[in-house]
């Protein structure tokens, strides 16, 4: 009898320990990034880091550490991805949630989940062998590995996130809203546009933000498919190098413990903070859309 109780209590604490690890890991990630990232600023001024655009840490003699160009690159690629993915994703989510029959929905949902399962390195590969050359041909560029290429690929990758979360939000709009609209003589389309989508507004925004988070943090796809040019991008037809790609390219070659090494953690810390803000924002919005019936 005593043994059973001991096991019961021991297991509770054991499992609590496992759960607490998640907190430790999150704090650990942040602490590690901060701890290593801060060391970079012993030799780099904050102003140089945040407000100049020349990133050339391995330059002989006078290395430079400005992240503005890669920040702009990340922003540009993400913006492009969202311009494509938001209408497509929200449209598809609306269709799945309100127009499609239950049977169609049950078939389509796992198929869309399959899209999410494609490894990012495969998407990047498709960007190299297919989408990139296609862009080069259509727009007459010498090289298709551009911000546009990255934007298209990231759009495809963030679609499953946007569709799944937005569909959930749109489906949770109470039927009584729709019925009220129908009873006033509105047709299905008007009801969707004027009643259902506005009612699911904050959930849809949460979906978009989460999709954006996915795009900002994606590494392999942009590393492979956007050309990795360090200059400040002037538009979608320029090759770009995002924050994630910079870390991926340089961390492998940089000697441990140098300013260059620490500067990559500083970039990582910034990236982490961005993704944290994105998550908290989405969570805050998503919590609001559920209608209590």
């Amino acid at each position: 009898m005593q043994k059973r109780h001991f096991i019961d209590r021991a297991i509770k604490w054991l499992f609590f320990g496992a759960a607490a690890t998640s907190v430790l890991v999150l704090l650990g990630i942040f602490g590690m990034l901060l701890f290593n990232g801060v060391k970079a600023f012993a030799h780099i001024s904050l102003a140089e880091f945040f407000f100049t655009s020349n990133w050339n840490p391995s330059a002989y003699g006078e290395p430079s550490y400005g992240i503005l160009a890669m920040l702009a690159s990340t922003f540009l690629v993400t913006l492009g991805a969202m311009l494509l993915a938001v209408p497509l994703g929200v449209g598809a989510a609306t269709y799945l949630a309100q127009v499609a029959t239950e049977k169609t929905r049950l078939i389509l949902k796992p198929v869309i989940e399959l899209l999410a399962a494609i490894p990012s390195v495969v998407v990047g590969f498709i960007g190299i062998v297919m989408v990139g050359p296609f862009i080069a041909r259509v727009f007459g560029l010498s090289n298709g590995l551009t911000a546009l290429n990255g934007a298209i690929l990231l759009a495809v990758m963030s679609l499953p996130t946007i569709i799944t979360v937005a569909e959930d939000a749109i489906r949770s709009v109470p039927n009584s809203f729709k019925e009220a609209s129908y009873s006033l003589g509105a047709n299905q389309w008007t009801t969707l546009i004027k009643v259902v989508l506005p009612a699911a507004y904050s959930g849809i925004i949460a979906a978009i933000i989460l999709g954006m988070g996915r795009a900002i943090g994606e590494t392999m796809t942009v590393l492979m498919a956007t050309g990795n040019a360090l200059a400040m991008p002037r538009g979608f037809f320029d090759p770009v190098r995002t924050m994630t790609a910079t870390i991926a390219i340089e961390l492998g070659e940089v000697p441990y413990g140098t300013t260059h090494y620490y500067s990559l953690f500083a970039v990582g810390a910034l990236l982490f903070l961005i993704s944290l803000v994105v998550n908290l924002l989405a969570e805050n919005l998503a919590g609001r859309y559920r209608y209590k019936l």
């Binding site: 988070g213 994606e218 870390i247 953690f265 993704s275 908290l280």
Partner: peptide
């Protein structure tokens, strides 16, 4: 704990890479 888990889900994979290295 719950908030940490939700936020860990959104951390970019390259950051996990940095964590792994360090």
């Amino acid at each position: 704990i719950r908030a940490s888990i939700r936020n860990l889900a959104g951390v970019p994979s390259i950051i996990y890479g940095l964590f792994g290295v360090a």
